[in-house]
């Protein structure tokens, strides 16, 4: 699903968080929103999904203007923290969120078993969330976001706290989803994750300072390290000072 963000502004109280953001995200790509903490990544995601209103500008997803409730059934959202019910088991959490998406029970059961296998949680599906480790919660949270096979997947820092073996597995699966036509939007502040993505935009202090394919972005840097992009921008010093 193609996402078009047009001149979006957002301020909380006095602080301008997003300034004139315009961005197009193409169908069937893994798009990475890169930025330091506090740069407005999560705010942008929330606006895109219609959780919070933008001050002005517009967002359309697949040609439909946000906010739209039906659009939410095409989206899978994984928030930054786990957002799972501690008192419920892994399976019950999945079942609850699939119920909100109105999935059929038989379809849910088949899908859920397959999903848990991918995130390597099949063995402990009856474990309560409060007994799970941080990494396990992250994986379950990802499974919850995927349960209704969304066409657009929005992942807020999906691989923080996940070990390297599983991280590779998750990326492989995300790429497989992309090949099936799913659009995936990922935010991260870990630069090494970016290389897994197709396109990337760099967000700093509410501005998009670069947006291109990851390949091109890396070619722009002197040493192939995408982190350099944050230092190449001559505005950086002034804006840090203003904060």
């Amino acid at each position: 699903m193609k996402i078009e963000i047009c001149d979006v502004n957002k301020a909380f109280k006095q602080q301008q968080v997003l300034k004139q953001i315009s961005l197009t995200i193409d169908t069937g790509r893994i798009f990475c929103l890169l930025g330091a903490s506090g740069s407005g990544k999560t705010t942008l995601l929330r606006i895109m999904m219609g959780a919070i209103p933008m001050d002005d500008g517009s967002v359309t997803i697949g040609g439909t203007a946000v906010p739209n409730r039906q659009l939410l059934s095409e989206m899978g959202y994984m928030p930054q923290n786990e957002a799972l019910y501690e008192e419920l088991s892994v399976w019950e959490n999945l079942k609850f969120f699939s119920g909100l998406q109105r999935l059929h029970r038989q379809k849910f059961e088949a899908d859920a078993v397959a999903l848990l296998q991918i995130v390597d949680m099949a063995a402990c599906k009856n474990k309560l969330i409060r007994d799970c480790s941080g990494g396990m919660k992250k994986r379950i949270s990802l499974a919850v976001a995927l349960i209704h096979k969304p066409k657009l997947l929005v992942l807020d820092e999906p691989t923080v706290g996940v070990d390297p073996v599983l991280r590779r597995k998750i990326w492989l699966y995300l790429k497989q989803l992309r090949n099936e036509g799913t659009t995936i939007l990922v935010t991260t502040h870990a630069m090494d994750e970016v290389t897994q993505c197709d396109d990337a935009a760099l967000l700093r202090n509410g501005h998009i300072i670069a947006r291109d394919t990851v390949k091109n972005l890396i070619n722009q840097t002197p040493d192939g390290n995408i982190e350099e992009l944050f230092f190449m921008d001559n505005q950086s010093e002034a804006e840090v000072a203003s904060c």
């Binding site: 409730r69 959202y77 019910y85 969120f97």
Partner: peptide
Amino acid sequence: FGQTLERMLMTPIS
């Protein structure tokens, strides 16, 4: 505060 409410509202539920 666990953000489960937000997650719940990010589904088509009314």
